[in-house]
């Protein structure tokens, strides 16, 4: 019964799997660039999930063409709006993370966050 549920909702399962992959990369990787890639995978997984939830089989994108105004003709537009907003947020935090990474790399010539921390401790600022 549960396995059948999983098979029916395999798209959602994939989204969750991606989320976990991204989350653990962001948390566990030492390399900053890999962390940022993890961040993007994690956010993309959420957008995939949202897009899935907005999709209704057999309906079209919610743009009125040929004067069809019936609600039954279109998919739910709100999740798409949320995805767009989310993408904007995700782009800005990625940009900020990359900028921080450049700063750190210029100073310490490494992308390994743990090594940077050890060196800071040695500097004993």
């Amino acid at each position: 019964m549960n396995l059948a549920n999983l098979a029916n909702n395999y798209e959602e399962a994939v989204a969750m799997l991606l989320f976990v992959i991204g989350f653990s990369n962001l948390l566990l990787q030492k390399n900053l660039i890999r962390k940022i890639i993890g961040l993007n995978i994690m956010d993309t997984a959420v957008y995939l999930f949202l897009a899935l939830k907005g999709y209704i089989e057999g309906r079209k994108a919610p743009i009125v063409v040929d004067g069809v105004q019936s609600m039954e003709a279109y998919v739910n537009p709100i999740p798409s709006g949320l995805v767009l907003t989310g993408i904007v947020v995700s782009v800005s935090v990625s940009a900020l993370m990359l900028a921080l990474t450049i700063r750190l790399y210029r100073r310490y010539h490494t992308l390994d966050l743990d090594e940077i921390t050890t060196r800071l401790k040695k500097e004993g600022l």
Binding site: K53, V93, L100, L104, Y108
Partner: peptide, 26 residues
């Protein structure tokens, strides 16, 4: 060096947190 490293760590933890929050909202 300290503040940049602290800011990076802060961002990483915060982004983990907001990822979970966003998933919850969805």
């Amino acid at each position: 060096g300290r503040t940049i490293e602290a800011a990076t760590r802060y961002m990483i933890m915060s982004l983990l947190g907001s990822g979970l929050l966003l998933l919850g909202i969805c």
